[in-house]
């Protein structure tokens, strides 16, 4: 395979920084480098049950990445709409792990605080992680109530009858259970965060294929 040693100097600094974080995130995914094999066939977008609601289809996400427009991807709703059904990953003729790549993009977005405007979905992820750190298990009621309280309080009123129906049938756990090993889990999370630090100096790998992809519209001018 074609190998180059440096990131092309033509990329703007911001793009380079975001790409660097993304590549670091993809490193963890076995087979994550298959991104470069994309044929732009569109099987992913055609198979995706929610692509109709995305502003960028999965195929466009890959195209934009290659075109050096990663920030545009991070500002799109697409990465947050993916429901992780893995249909694209299963059908991709090039075995690209599209779902896992979208996860990696979400992680970049969370790290850099880049979200589409008025778009709170990422908060549910943060709350979820907080619950695991506190109790060791997820608590459905807390997760959902916290999310709605912050963003759509009225929705809670609408959901009340359903909540009551579930409660009457013993399907609503009111209080979270704390597992015995929660302190150990916290130590693991802390140790993991400490391990993350030196990765900032990790060598940057060049992902082949960042040849301007014309079909996505006007690209910013850059020296070749």
């Amino acid at each position: 395979m074609r190998q180059r040693k440096t990131v092309p100097g033509s990329l703007p600094p911001r793009e380079r920084e975001l790409r660097q974080i993304f590549l670091r995130e993809v490193e963890v995914v076995p087979g994550g480098d298959r991104l470069s094999r994309c044929l732009q066939c569109g099987t992913c977008s055609g198979s995706c049950p929610v692509s109709y609601a995305m502003d960028l289809s999965p195929r466009a996400v890959i195209a934009l990445f290659r075109a050096g427009l990663i920030e545009e991807i991070l500002h799109s709703r697409s990465i947050w709409i993916c429901a992780s059904c893995y249909m694209c990953t299963t059908r991709c003729p090039q075995q690209i792990k599209i779902t896992d790549l979208l996860y990696a993009l979400k992680r970049v977005a969370m790290e850099k605080g880049l979200y589409p405007d008025r778009f709170p979905v990422y908060l549910i992820s943060k709350n979820f992680v907080r619950l695991i750190g506190r109790y060791g298990r997820n608590h459905e009621l807390m997760l959902v109530v916290r999310f709605y309280l912050k963003h759509k309080p009225l929705e809670l009123v609408r959901l009340l009858p359903l909540g009551l129906a579930m409660f009457r049938r013993g399907r609503l756990m009111l209080l979270p259970k704390r597992i015995r090993g929660v302190a150990a889990i916290r130590r693991m999370i802390e140790a993991s965060e400490a391990l993350e630090l030196p990765r900032e100096e990790a060598p940057v790998q060049y992902v082949p294929g960042s040849v301007g992809y014309r079909a996505v519209g006007a690209l910013p001018e850059r020296a070749v």
Binding site: V28, V29, V129, I132, G136, N138, G181, I189
Partner: peptide
């Protein structure tokens, strides 16, 4: 004393953890 598997949500925050 099992703990949450992390679901798909944790994966989108921090993969190694």
């Amino acid at each position: 004393d099992w703990n949450c598997c992390g679901a798909t949500i944790y994966m989108s925050v921090d993969e190694a953890t």
